[in-house]
Write a protein that binds this DNA or RNA. Sequence first.
DNA 1: CGAAAAAGTCAAGAAACGGTCAAATTTGCG
DNA 2: CGCAAATTTGACCGTTTCTTGACTTTTTCG
Lengths: 224, 224
Amino acid sequence: MAYRILIADDEEMLVRVLREHLEREGYVVSVAEDGAQALDRLNLRPDLILLDINMPGLDGLELCRMIRDAVSCPIIFLTARITEADKVRGFRAGGDDYITKPFGLQELSARIAAHLRRDERVKSAGSIVSSHGLIVDLAGRRVLWSGSEIRFSKREFDIIEFLITNKNQIFDRERMYELVWGLDAEGDSSVIKEHVRKIRAKLLEATGREFIETVWGMGYRWKK
Amino acid sequence: MAYRILIADDEEMLVRVLREHLEREGYVVSVAEDGAQALDRLNLRPDLILLDINMPGLDGLELCRMIRDAVSCPIIFLTARITEADKVRGFRAGGDDYITKPFGLQELSARIAAHLRRDERVKSAGSIVSSHGLIVDLAGRRVLWSGSEIRFSKREFDIIEFLITNKNQIFDRERMYELVWGLDAEGDSSVIKEHVRKIRAKLLEATGREFIETVWGMGYRWKK
DNA sequence: CGAAAAAGTCAAGAAACGGTCAAATTTGCG
DNA sequence: CGCAAATTTGACCGTTTCTTGACTTTTTCG
């Protein structure tokens, strides 16, 4: 299946060239001309986003953060010129790479391919996710905080893994129960209340922070 | 629950064959013979639309855009022949796929299935819809306005989600009650008055704008 | 104008939900 | 088998949210 690339840029000429080039390489391209449209187009679940950092409307970095909240695909900034400070801010906001205008199409293609490959690897490897300094090692099934391990039982880790890999999404207890215990599981989803309590207690004790948020009537979510 | 497919095409023979074939595959099929009828049938909330691009009356692309304004389901164009330029225009107008006549029923089935699967993924993954700067995060079940969150209760969010994903359509309270609470719900649809009041108050307080419009005697609609 | 229908407002009781705890049951392991 | 840890269950309580019904305002139309 073809990779989907979202171009968020308002320079018509540039967009036209990019679209043509990328479509020739077999990508499915969609375009957004401003921030709001870009957010809207996330519906299409792009595999990679090319984001012009200077678009009308929303601030580019802010936009990047919002995109990051919704999808996890690589984001490459397109930008006129860039300082070291810009770079740092960009990476903080969740960008993965920069390419400064004007750029060659060959170079762009190479970077896109690299990111897609890397993303593919990460997805399949199942590895480490971190969240405000908390390191969750999915392969090793351990949670680390400033060097030392916080111990969780199997169920507890299952729940953490589930929530953290679906960061910022909300799941009610029914749904979590189905997805963590399995569709065919019988039993009462209210067990989750108890597990969540334990997880929270351990995390709070070790880190002093709250990671799991309750949204009344809707469910739980892992804070970004 | 069976998927609903809307066929918008005026060639009687073709429609008859399609209907029979799709019904045999378990879909619920409805047919529109011109643009106006197609728009009307959107009430049935189809899960996918097969749209003949050359129908009497409205221009096909224009029709596609109007459909797109109202519903978000996949739209597959049925067309006699197609150039690259047509394709681009079609995608711009919000089409998702093309299939050129004459086509095999097998191929059509495959494409339909693929789109329904993808759409299901998107729906369950949840996504983001924006409306005049208001950002509704379906997965995170929250509403953002210029960076900060406007809090809504579950029912309130359900209603917002429903209206905004059916932008520009009007729903009377009965219908909204059925579709948001569920067909089997018992109770009085006049609760909606109260929820709408709360939603409006919160939105107005935060944004200074009206998003939900009352159409006297008809119902409510989310302003485009 | 004036009556009837539709929509909006408000307050209060009902219902649903989440957090907590302790006790019961199951599981893993020596 | 038998112990300890993990998991599940059920009950309770304070809170938040939902619903209801009475009442007011707005709109329509004879």
